[in-house]
Amino acid sequence: MGVGFVVGVFGVLILAHAAYSTIQYRSLLKIMQEEFAGPPFNVAIELVLGLVLSMWAALTVPGKFLSINPESEENRIVSLPANLDFMVFNHRGKLFSQQLDLKLKH
């Protein structure tokens, strides 16, 4: 959590810095009266770096990935629930004498 979160914040900061530099570059172009063709090379590198860092953080910080395959070890269905709505009480279990003197004490 700790490292991933810090990296994520750093990535977002880099992205913000890239945006800020682009805006500055454009205002500079306006003063020089030139057309804006694209951000400068170092800003593009900054963008890619920020993207990679924030993407890595977004994939690691929230938690582990779970399998969605029905046959995977976690999702594999091994038994059906007992059909409790159709539960029947006069089964053979009552023939076993239970030496329980359970009582609700209130």
Partner: peptide
């Protein structure tokens, strides 16, 4: 209560 009914512990079920 339902578990008690299933175990034939009628008194417990009744109390619950």
């Amino acid at each position: 209560a339902i578990a008690a009914l299933d175990c034939q512990a009628i008194d417990v079920a009744k109390d619950c």
